[in-house]
């Protein structure tokens, strides 16, 4: 892509009416394959793959726990990237993204903690332990909630977005800590199941549905974020001509 066409693309993408118009189609394109793949992953995890030779059927919680955990990290990292864009270029679409993604990321972080806790009780004999992995994931939930609270507390949307951006950028240090916590500290939490460079600790038949499911949930994350962005966008632009016109035209 040449420099000028890249700039043109950026300009169009940053154009809010354009984004609002096309994001509906993008969301639909993500929703169908996302639901199908996530559905397959969960179905295979619950009904097709054999029980784990050590943990039995309780290990099936992995098919919701690992995709949630992946999205809790992915969501915050994406917010930190948007945070840099906000702090450096003040791009409005990035401001809208950060606040749209935060509640979804928070919900997946919550799911990670809850499903992990339910899995921990029969496997470790405890619902909760102040282990490095669990504690850093709990801090991630507080970071997400902090971004949401900042956005609600500051009235000016642009100042609020800068505050949220700053917290996202600073808080992203927690992401590698979560990822490597099982390596750096001797934790109760088991080591990584999926190792892209080889040596995964799971059978191929068990890991493929997990990967398909994780990809499916990632597409769902994108779909949900786009819908939240659309709502956030017309709220931010509620006084602009194109929004009021469009809405009166729809009725």
């Amino acid at each position: 892509m040449s420099h000028s066409s890249a700039m043109r693309w950026l300009h169009r993408f940053g154009s809010l009416p354009y984004f609002y118009r096309v994001s509906r189609l993008w969301a639909r394109c993500l929703a169908l394959p996302g639901l199908a793949m996530a559905g397959y992953g969960v179905y295979a995890g619950l009904a097709i793959v054999p029980p784990d030779y050590q943990q039995g059927d309780v290990f099936r919680i992995i098919y919701i726990h690992v995709p949630s955990a992946w999205l809790s990290l992915f969501g915050y990292t994406a917010m930190a990237v948007a945070g840099v864009v906000i702090l450096v270029w003040r791009l409005k679409i990035a401001e809208i993204f950060i606040i749209a993604a935060a509640p979804i990321g928070a919900s997946f972080t919550f799911l990670t903690l809850v499903t992990g806790s339910i899995w921990g009780e029969p496997t470790w004999g405890t619902w909760w332990v102040w282990d490095a992995r669990l504690t850093s994931e709990l801090i991630l939930l507080f970071l997400y909630l902090g971004v949401i609270a900042l956005h609600q507390a500051i009235e000016s949307p642009r100042i609020a977005a800068r505050a949220c951006a700053l917290l996202s950028v600073v808080g992203v240090i927690n992401i590698p800590i979560i990822h490597y916590s099982v390596v750096w500290w001797n934790t109760l939490h088991q080591g990584s199941t999926i190792r892209p460079l080889g040596g995964s600790t799971m059978e191929t038949d068990m890991i493929i549905p997990l990967l398909i499911g994780a990809l499916g949930f990632t597409l769902i994350f994108g779909w949900l974020t786009l819908w939240r962005m659309r709502a956030q966008l017309i709220w931010r632009e509620r006084r602009s001509r194109w929004v009021t016109r469009m809405i009166h035209h729809e009725r």
Partner: peptide
Amino acid sequence: GGYARYVWSAYGIA
């Protein structure tokens, strides 16, 4: 396999 309440509560909440 005897883990019904754990597995189904995790998936129900999800």
